[in-house]
Structures are given as structure tokens and as C-alpha cells.
Write a protein that binds this DNA or RNA. Structure first.
Length: 649
RNA sequence: GCUGAUGUAGCUCAGGGGUAGAGCGCUUCCUUGGUAAGGAAGAGGUCGCGAGUUCAAAUCUCGCCCUCAGCUCCA
């Protein structure tokens, strides 16, 4: 008998050699139906593999990442089998899982090509093969046998992989007529796979190296239920509709120009207004938290970045230095604001009583991103960070961290990001020499971050070894309305720059001390944040932020004068309103302005002009009845105040 | 940066060796309408840029640029 420890700590006894599936069956028939793989002492196994010693196990279903990975891994094999059916002689590279689904890199026989049109027939074949419910069988083989097996097939890619594996660790999996080199684990049989969608074909170099042969990569995703696939496809459709590049164009927020250059966004009037409102909001919040705004130039001497270390690390792969008529003078477009802020810190002697110093700037920086990497506003070559640097004493670190977390909470609340988590990145305990700064300071800083998060009740995951060499950090991830994750703001401790810039303050002991620096940017960058906000809200921004809050719609031209007087009154009351006095029917005006995502539509005609009122229609919700213009203004202001309540309270 | 696809009116797109098309938008006129598309007429384009082939190129060829997808990268 062997002892099996379950995740809840309970221990069950079984005959040695029991399989994961049998354990699941002994727990519940429901679990046996849902289970996809098992972890045995931390290693993920097939359900059919016998457990022969005491172990701690965990059963994985579709709800677990490991379960999905098992499912998609088997799906990759199934796809490979279907491809081999249509394209005999295809050589197979690797077929791993990705965030959503899997891919397989293949090398088609000479002269053959696979196109989008082929995907459908491969999908059909996969489903046909899946329905046969063939067992997926694992076997361990020797290296010689593996080399012989794939050598006979002429599968040179697999031979290369096998040659790098140690003898005794090689496993293969077989389903029906298809055998693949694979570490596993896999589903018990192919019948679990009920829905298949092959999403795209792309080129990819063998082993990611552009000197190697270009293979064909086929991406796919599979599900245990057709309904899940339908939902997935609907989500993709919705994501396309919300693409910030599309909405940004429709709402006239930003554009790009070939003449200006790729990756250099041009903010249009409405986009600029929106961005400015975001900046003003953060400025106000920061003022309340004791930040001081500074302004620094867009370029700096090359030497500045040699001092900071950025030139050595990134100088070769970024914008080249700008030279001047003066011999030997070189300037760089600033890739970050920190060196400038360090120089402001150094401007005069600092006392421990002056700390913390909180220096904020909406600082525009320029980084040369590879052209293929540029994407809308999320990845650009010139962008503005909502940057700030806090210079503090080591004992102030925790308090400062908590205050930064407060600011981030205020922002999330004001913008309806309700689902967020944070990642704490700490040192790799096995590699302490990698990091600059004393072990004592590191410990202090790491503890400060962990405690600050706990005290603020933040949901966190901790990753060891993810810290930068110069300090630990905290990154915020938000989930948008479609459940997609985005990395936003970051708070980063830095021991490196204070050292490099020789920053110091005079302590209570009248001795010189090194301050700790915190970099933080709640939005990350204005560009990226606006992009995320567009995709989160589908362009329906909160009332306080949206470029146009209200549109006045006269029923006919007879009421244009009254509509204009309402418009003026609203504008004079700091409501952002426009008028639609086109010669169109009211139904048409309502439709067009609903599609423009304007939150409030005010219909005015004979009744309203007589009673000096407006008929209110809320975007997406329909008619709300009529009220006086003053009552409407009060109503709008109350809504704005509610949205910003976390700041004003 | 690499591989592939793409680039036609403000937008979404069709067409294709003989000098340019639709829908929406815009302008004007008719209509003056009460909560998601009223009607008519009109203006608007070096067909991404540059070379080549041809009697003739938006169309074919080559080079470049942008955009998109994937790869690689990301202070």
C-alpha cells in the first residue's frame, strides 16, 4: 500500500501502481470525468501512469493551467497526425502550448505549401481522429532506439532534439498510427477533444534562430466543449471591435503619419484633451501626496547616460547620439527621466529632514523599438511616462510604498479597473552576487514591499529571481472587461542610480548617507494607458474623462436657437457639450450620436423650449425623462463626483 | 531586424495593361420630422513612393516606405 496526500492535506491509502485516473474515480465520478492530468510530487504526469510510492498529488482539470496545457499538448499531437495524413513526409519540429492553445512547427515536403484554406480540412480530420477515442500511450525508450525510430522516418528536426537529450530520459507517445517524441504529459485518449479551431499560419525559425531554416508554424486552439469554442470565438470578435487602433481612429483620438515616422503617435485634439484630463487628475492626486512637479529637457549629454549605465547597456541598440557643430559634443534623446531627476536631487545639499523628496514629471522619452514590434499606442518609439522618483531614507521605504499603492488604487477606482493583482519581484536567493546594494538593504526593501502590500490588502503573487539587478519591484496587472490581462504601473526600488550618481544626504548623525530611490509610474505611459483604457471601455470612457459628455439634439431647425442657448449654458457651466444641428430627423441624430459614444443626449423641441427644460437620454439606456437644465447640470456633476469619490474622500 | 500578407476617396472596401468604382461621411436643395438610418443632386482620388518594361502602367517587374500577423527583442 502507498500513501497519497491530497491538496487539502488528507491522506488516502491505495495499492501501489494505482493510476491518477483511478485515484480520481475513487474520489468522485464527477472528478473522474473532468480530470485531465495529475501532478505527483510536483511533476505533472499522465493519468494512466502508475504511482508506485508515497506521494503528494494534485488532480488538474480544465480550470487549472496544467490541465489546459495537457489538453492542448495532446491537441498539438492530434494536429500533427492530421497534417501527416494530408502531407506525408512532413518533418515535425516542436509543438508546445501557448497562453491560449498551441502550435506546431513543421517542415513540409519540398514543393508543398499549406494555406489558410487547408486549415479547415485539417480541423475536420482532427475531429474525426478525436472521435475514434484512441488511447495515447506513453513509453520510455533508449536514445539509440529513438534515434533509429526517427532516423527511419527521416525526421531530421526530431533527431536534432533527441541528440541533445540524455539517455534514459526519452519518452515517446503514440496514438493510433502516430508517434511523437515528447516529454508529456498527455490526455488518456483523443476523445476529450471536442472542438477545434486552427487560428493562423505563420513563419518561424527553427529554434527561434534566424540563421536556421524557416518552418511553418500552425496555431490552433481546442476545447472540451463546442460551446467553449463558440464563446472563445465571440471573445476574439469582441476584442477586434475594441481594438484601440480602430476606436482611436473612429473617435479621432490619435493618428500616425508616415512622414513623421513610425511609432511616433500624433495626438488629435480630442485625444489630447482626454490625455490632459488624465494627467491633470494624476497631478492633483500627486500634489495631495506631496509630490513636486519638475520639468526636464528631452535630450541630455551622452555622458549623463554613460554615468547612469544606460549607454553601455542600450546605447548600441537605440537612437544614435545627436552631434552638434562643436567637435566632440554628443547628446542623446532621453530614454528615461531618472538621470535628469538625479541631477535635480544633486542640485543642492540635502538633509535627512528634506526626505522623502518626491519628484514628478510627465516626461517624454524615446526608445528605439524594433520596427516589427511597434503596435498602435501600446508599443511606440516616443511616449510620455507619468514618471516620479522618490528619494528617501531606507526606513521610509515602506511608508512611501504604501502611499504609492494608495495612488494606484485611486486611479483604478476612478477608471473602473476592479480586477487587479500585483506581482512582487524579489531576488533569486541562489544567486545573491547578481545584485547591487547591500544584503541588509535588500532585505529591508523586500520586507517593506511585502508588508506594504499586506497592510494595503493587495492580492499579490511573489516571484523569486524576477527583481532587477538594481532593486526589487512591484508590478500591477489589471484585467479588462474582456478578462484580458494588462501590465500597467510599476513601483521599483533602485540602489544603483543613487550609487552611480553619488547621491547623498546628511543624516541626523551629521554623516553622509545614500538615499534609496523609488521609480514609479501608475499609468506606465500615457500612450499605453490610453490604449488599455480604450480596450477596457470600448471607447465608452467614464463621464469625468470622456472628450464629449453631452450632445444637444434639436428636433427640427426651428429649435436650433433654443438648443444653442442650452449648449452655451452647459459650456459655461464646465460641461463638455456639443450640438448636432444638422438638418436630419431626431431618430437619425440619436443613432449617430449613440454611435459616437457620447454619454448624454439632450433632445429639445417644442415642449422643452416652452418649459426651458431638456429631455435626457443616456447612452445605451434610452429615455430618462425631462428636467430643467440646472437639474441636469447638477445631475452630471454628481455623477462625476461619484466617479472621483476615492480621490475626494 | 527577419518571414509572409497588405497599401485604391475622410472611413470601410470592390476592381484591374487603354486614364477610376460602391456604401458611409461631406456640401447644396427638398423635407421640419419626438427617441437608433427621410429623399435628391454635387464635390472629392498622381490608385503608398521611386525606377523599369510598354504605343499605353493604378494594374506587369524591381527597389524603398508604411500597415498587419507571426518570430526575435524590450531601460
Amino acid at each position: 500500500m502507498i500513501k497519497i496526500t491530497l491538496p487539502d492535506g488528507s491522506i488516502r491509502e491505495y495499492e501501489s501502481g494505482i493510476s491518477g485516473m483511478e485515484i480520481a474515480e475513487s474520489i468522485s465520478s464527477r472528478l473522474a470525468k473532468d480530470v485531465l492530468s495529475i501532478s505527483v510530487d510536483g511533476e505533472v504526469w499522465d493519468l494512466s501512469r502508475p504511482v508506485t510510492k508515497d506521494a503528494t498529488i494534485r488532480l488538474y482539470t480544465w480550470d487549472d493551467r496544467a490541465g489546459k496545457e495537457t489538453f492542448w499538448h495532446s491537441s498539438a499531437h492530434l494536429m500533427a497526425e492530421a497534417i501527416e495524413f494530408f502531407f506525408p513526409g512532413t518533418k515535425f519540429g516542436i509543438g508546445p502550448t501557448v497562453d491560449t492553445g498551441f502550435y506546431y512547427d513543421i517542415d513540409l515536403p519540398a514543393g508543398q505549401q499549406i494555406s489558410e484554406k487547408d486549415l479547415e480540412k485539417i480541423e475536420k480530420k482532427m475531429l474525426e481522429l478525436a472521435r475514434e477515442k484512441r488511447d495515447i500511450v506513453r513509453s520510455e525508450i533508449s536514445k539509440d532506439d529513438a534515434l533509429k525510430m526517427f532516423g527511419d522516418k527521416g525526421d531530421v528536426l526530431k533527431l536534432e532534439l533527441i541528440s541533445e537529450l540524455a539517455d534514459g530520459t526519452i519518452t515517446i507517445y503514440n496514438q493510433g498510427g502516430f508517434t511523437d517524441l515528447c516529454r508529456g504529459p498527455h490526455l488518456p485518449n483523443t476523445g476529450y477533444i471536442k472542438a477545434v479551431k486552427l487560428t493562423s499560419i505563420a513563419g518561424a525559425y527553427w529554434r527561434g534562430n534566424e540563421k536556421n531554416k524557416m518552418l511553418t508554424r500552425i496555431y490552433g486552439v481546442t476545447f472540451p466543449k463546442q460551446k467553449m469554442l463558440d464563446e472563445y470565438l465571440a471573445l476574439i470578435e469582441e476584442a477586434k471591435k475594441r481594438d484601440h487602433r480602430k476606436i482611436g481612429k473612429e473617435m479621432e483620438l490619435f493618428t500616425f503619419s508616415q512622414a513623421v515616422g513610425q511609432g511616433l503617435p500624433l495626438w488629435l485634439p480630442k485625444g489630447a484633451m482626454l490625455r490632459q484630463r488624465l494627467e491633470d487628475f494624476l497631478r492633483k492626486v500627486q500634489k495631495k501626496y506631496g509630490y513636486e512637479q519638475v520639468i526636464t529637457p528631452h535630450i541630455g549629454q551622452k555622458e549623463l547616460y554613460v554615468t547612469s549605465g544606460h549607454y553601455a547597456k542600450y546605447g548600441q541598440d537605440s537612437f544614435r547620439p545627436i552631434s552638434t557643430p562643436q567637435e566632440g559634443e554628443e547628446f542623446l534623446l532621453k530614454p528615461m527621466n531618472c538621470p535628469h531627476h538625479c541631477e535635480i536631487f544633486k542640485w543642492k545639499p540635502r538633509s535627512y529632514k528634506d526626505l522623502p523628496i518626491r519628484m514628478a514629471e510627465f516626461g517624454t522619452v524615446y526608445r528605439y523599438e524594433q520596427s516589427g514590434e511597434l503596435h498602435g499606442l501600446t508599443r511606440v518609439r516616443g511616449f510620455t511616462q507619468d514618471d516620479a522618483h522618490l528619494f528617501c531614507r531606507p526606513d521610509q521605504l515602506k511608508d512611501e510604498f504604501k502611499k504609492v499603492i494608495d495612488i494606484i488604487f485611486i486611479i483604478f477606482k476612478a477608471l473602473n479597473f476592479e480586477d487587479y493583482t500585483a506581482q512582487i519581484s524579489l531576488r533569486d536567493p541562489n544567486n545573491p552576487i547578481k545584485y547591487i546594494g547591500s544584503a541588509e538593504n535588500w532585505e529591508k526593501a523586500e520586507r517593506a514591499i511585502v508588508e506594504a502590500c499586506e497592510e494595503k490588502g493587495l492580492k499579490t503573487v511573489t516571484e523569486l529571481g524576477e527583481a532587477a539587478f538594481y532593486g526589487p519591484k512591484l508590478d500591477f496587472m489589471i484585467k479588462d472587461a474582456l478578462g484580458r490581462s494588462w501590465q500597467l504601473g510599476t513601483i521599483q526600488v533602485d540602489y544603483n542610480l543613487p550609487e552611480r550618481f553619488d547621491l547623498e544626504y546628511i543624516g541626523a548623525d551629521d554623516k553622509r548617507h545614500r538615499p534609496v530611490m523609488i521609480h514609479r509610474a501608475p499609468f506606465g505611459s500615457m500612450e499605453r494607458f490610453v490604449a488599455v483604457l480604450i480596450e477596457h471601455t470600448a471607447g465608452k470612457f467614464p463621464l469625468w474623462l470622456t472628450p464629449e459628455q453631452v450632445v444637444v439634439l434639436p428636433i427640427s431647425e426651428k429649435y436650433n436657437d433654443y438648443a444653442k442657448s442650452v449648449l452655451n449654458y452647459l459650456n459655461n457651466s464646465d460641461i463638455r457639450a456639443i450640438i448636432d444641428d444638422r438638418n436630419e430627423k431626431i431618430g437619425r441624430k440619436i443613432r449617430d450620436n449613440e454611435l459616437k459614444r457620447i454619454p448624454y443626449l439632450l433632445v429639445v423641441g417644442e415642449q422643452e423650449s416652452e418649459s426651458q427644460s431638456v429631455s435626457v437620454r443616456k447612452q445605451g439606456e434610452g429615455d430618462k425623462g425631462s428636467m430643467s437644465v440646472d437639474a441636469f447640470i447638477e445631475f452630471i456633476n454628481a455623477e462625476v463626483k461619484e466617479q472621483l469619490s476615492s480621490f475626494y474622500n
